[in-house]
Simulated assay, not measured.
Amino acid sequence: MSVSKVYFTDFHTEAFGDGLPTKLKKLIKRAGIADLDLEGKFVAIKMHFGELGNISYLRPNYARAVVDVVKELGGKPFLTDCNTMYPGSRKNALEHLECAWQNGFTPLTVGCPILIGDGLKGTDDVEVPVVGGEYVEKAKIGRAVMDADVFISLTHFKGHEMTGFGGTIKNIGMGCGSRAGKTEQHASGKPQIDPKLCRGCTRCQKECANGGLVFDKEARKMTVDQNNCVGCGRCLGACNFDAIYFVNDNANSTLNCRMAEYTKAVLDGRPNFHISLVVDVSPNCDCHGENDIPILPNIG
């Protein structure tokens, strides 16, 4: 594996000088985006449109800067993401697009179409072989993502309850997985609930989209339905009392390995380019319907 060349610019701007979108355009040109053959090619720009209520997602202005450069080089760009496997405003394509529009991502603002990669209900996927994979034989990737000729990731770092931090690999590996693909990546562990620590607040149940949590009204305790639980870990992040835990100690590390292999499936054999911003690094993922203050200053 060859070592990547990394190009960096900070967020400083001079009075009457370039704004941040212009700086981003200059950076990706300097980093060699023009070396990709984009003429007449379909270019998927994978990003996160943010959950409603969360405003730490990347601004549409950054997406527009990348789109403008791709179009300047003759490419046919579209912004894309795949549906989620948990409750929220992005679990099907109709709500997902509505969410994107409300958060400022429209064809008018970003300069290109917006496509939900795995279709209306998250079932439009392609099984992509993972060459040399140890954890995944065939990754289930959104069809529109795989139909693109060129792949560009545009992401920023943020905290995550299961992976520690989410960045480019999470944006690609988890983000490009269909609903079935996301379920497969999380399938290495299912949580248990310590009844001594559970307060019966039901906060965790609001995060479960699969009927994996059942509240015992008599005991005033939450329990896990092992048949319905998909191991997504949303309940783990929602519990303020440390009552929820994984029996499988390597569940998180296995999730990261599967996510890396899904990323390989998305990128293998086609031109790709990656843009990461260290900005608005919230403690929790953009998938949450809220965000806290950044845990470190914006860097570049």
Score class of each variant (00 low, 15 high):
residue 106 T to L: 04
residue 117 G to V: 06
residue 164 G to Y: 06
residue 81 D to P: 08
residue 252 N to H: 15
residue 258 R to G: 08
residue 218 E to A: 13
residue 238 A to W: 01
residue 214 V to A: 08
residue 156 H to S: 02
residue 4 S to V: 05
residue 162 M to I: 14
residue 159 G to M: 02
residue 247 V to C: 01
residue 59 R to S: 15
residue 290 E to Y: 12
residue 19 G to D: 15
residue 173 G to E: 05
residue 168 T to S: 15
residue 200 G to D: 05
residue 291 N to Y: 15
residue 103 N to R: 13
residue 60 P to C: 02
residue 257 C to T: 00
residue 4 S to Q: 10
residue 273 F to M: 04
residue 255 L to F: 15
residue 68 D to P: 02
residue 61 N to C: 07
residue 51 E to S: 08
residue 42 F to C: 02
residue 277 L to H: 05
residue 133 G to C: 07
residue 148 A to L: 14
residue 218 E to R: 09
residue 283 P to G: 07
residue 200 G to V: 05
residue 46 K to W: 10
residue 102 Q to F: 10
residue 213 L to A: 12
residue 81 D to Q: 14
residue 115 L to Q: 08
residue 240 N to F: 10
residue 109 T to C: 05
residue 131 V to R: 06
residue 178 S to L: 02
residue 259 M to W: 08
residue 20 L to I: 11
residue 85 M to K: 02
residue 128 V to N: 00
residue 277 L to M: 15
residue 102 Q to V: 13
residue 210 N to Q: 10
residue 39 E to S: 14
residue 173 G to A: 03
residue 168 T to M: 07
residue 138 K to T: 09
residue 36 L to T: 11
residue 6 V to F: 05
residue 2 S to M: 01
residue 115 L to N: 08
residue 164 G to D: 12
residue 47 M to Q: 06
residue 289 G to W: 01
residue 87 P to D: 08
residue 68 D to Y: 00
residue 134 E to C: 09
residue 241 F to S: 07
residue 125 D to Q: 12
residue 83 N to F: 14
residue 139 A to P: 06
residue 249 D to F: 03
residue 39 E to A: 14
residue 292 D to P: 00
residue 224 V to H: 00
residue 286 D to G: 05
residue 25 K to L: 09
residue 140 K to E: 06
residue 183 T to Y: 00
residue 158 K to H: 13
residue 37 D to C: 03
residue 94 L to N: 07
residue 189 G to K: 04
residue 82 C to M: 13
residue 114 I to R: 01
residue 236 L to R: 03
residue 108 L to F: 14
residue 140 K to N: 08
residue 214 V to P: 05
residue 126 V to E: 10
residue 87 P to M: 03
residue 119 G to C: 07
residue 95 E to S: 14
residue 93 A to W: 00
residue 194 D to Q: 01
residue 27 L to T: 03
residue 201 C to M: 03
residue 31 A to C: 03
residue 221 K to R: 09
residue 41 K to H: 14
residue 91 K to L: 07
residue 296 L to G: 03
residue 270 R to V: 12
residue 265 A to T: 12
residue 296 L to P: 01
residue 248 N to V: 07
residue 8 F to V: 14
residue 193 I to Q: 09
residue 211 G to K: 02
residue 77 P to S: 11
residue 234 R to T: 04
residue 63 A to V: 09
residue 138 K to N: 12
residue 62 Y to K: 10
residue 132 G to W: 15
residue 57 Y to L: 06
residue 123 T to R: 09
